[in-house]
């Protein structure tokens, strides 16, 4: 059990992901490589080691994953989906290279996934609806400075219908509250400047209860085991709600560092499990939110809505400033 963040090990772990062709896992995760690169790059940004990846090579690869419909697949030759389109846009945004993209083609793709009848967002042309896609639709359009490409009202309605008695949000109307879905809803409402919809007290109480006794890790729903990724989903939501101080950061850091693989680097969902880039990313992001630091180590701050480094979101004018989500605070929160 390590007590410190093994920065060098994690950087190595992320760099090695692209060179692990002798591991089955490399091939089994090929279909979400674009997201894998996104998770790796965010982690490196937060560790102040952005240059650990080959920027031109990454950009070239990402651009090669765009399909004629304007969306991105998770790998070259794979079908477009909003999940991977989001990761691709985030990577290019972090590299300040959105101009390398035909903005119009991406916006058209996102626009095509708003159900013409209901106005709800779909994940791809096959029509799955989920609050995750409500968030991604709004996030991508706002990153291109064109949020009104989508009809915002029905998207908000969908999120509102997904709200539950416990103050949380589910994957859609009728769906049970789940910390990851809460993040997508809170972040979507922040972007649309409609946080007035949430029951701030109830939701914050539900979220801070996700931190579990003894281990200090967070779970995604009551009675479930703690898992490193909820360090991000629950904490980012609490941060937007301005209630981040309702959990114990020291205990959380203890949990996250106990999930590190001291031999090969990387962070796993729980202590002793196989590390992966997804949990490495969200573990480090959670620590960044709590302003974790060590002697000679400060983490770069992360934006709780866009899940990109704060400096990137500021540069894009999406944090403070007239279009920024921080520019709006509901009346009742003041």
């Amino acid at each position: 059990m390590a007590e410190k963040l093994l920065v060098e090990k994690h950087v190595e772990f992320i760099q090695k992901l692209d060179k692990s062709q002798n591991e089955l896992e490399y091939w089994m995760t090929e279909h979400l490589r674009v997201s894998g690169i996104y998770w790796g790059l965010v982690a490196l940004e937060i560790l102040n080691r952005t240059d650990a990846l080959d920027k031109p090579k990454v950009i070239e690869y990402i651009l090669s994953c765009q399909n004629p419909d304007g969306g991105f697949g998770g790998h070259v030759g794979h079908d477009s989906h909003l999940l991977y389109t989001m990761s691709a846009v985030q990577i290019l945004a972090m590299y300040d290279s959105l101009d390398k993209l035909d903005k119009e083609s991406v916006l058209k793709y996102v626009e095509s996934l708003q159900d013409p009848e209901t106005g709800y967002m779909m994940g791809d042309k096959w029509g799955e609806k989920d609050t995750r896609f409500a968030f991604i639709g709004l996030a991508i359009c706002s990153m291109f400075g064109d949020i009104n490409r989508l009809k915002v009202d029905p998207i908000i309605e969908y999120i509102q219908l997904s709200m539950n008695y416990d103050g949380g949000f589910g994957s859609g109307p009728g769906g049970e509250s789940h910390a990851a879905q809460v993040y997508t809803c809170v972040a979507a409402l922040a972007i649309a400047k409609r946080l007035d919809i949430v029951d701030r007290e109830k939701l914050s109480m539900w979220l801070c209860e996700r931190q579990v006794e003894h281990s200090g890790g967070l779970n995604g729903r009551p009675q479930k085991l703690p898992d490193v990724c909820y360090s991000w989903w629950a904490l980012s939501s609490l941060d937007v709600l301005k209630r981040l101080h309702w959990i114990d950061s020291k205990m959380l850091a203890k949990f996250v560092t106990s999930c590190q693989d001291a031999d090969f680097g990387g962070i796993s969902d729980r202590p002793g499990n196989i590390a992966d880039v997804y949990h490495t990313c969200f573990g480090i992001c959670g620590l960044s939110l709590t302003q974790y630091s060590e002697e000679n180590l400060t983490l770069s701050p992360i934006d709780p809505v866009y899940c990109m480094p704060t400096h990137v979101v500021e540069r894009m004018g999406l944090s403070h400033g007239p279009n920024g989500w921080r520019n709006y605070v509901p009346e009742s929160w003041k």
């Binding site: 693989d261 969902d269 002793g272 499990n273 590390a275 997804y278 949990h279």
Partner: peptide, 10 residues
């Protein structure tokens, strides 16, 4: 990505 036990170096 969830719930798989780590293997040792050996």
């Amino acid at each position: 990505m969830h719930g798989r036990t780590r293997k040792s170096k050996e």
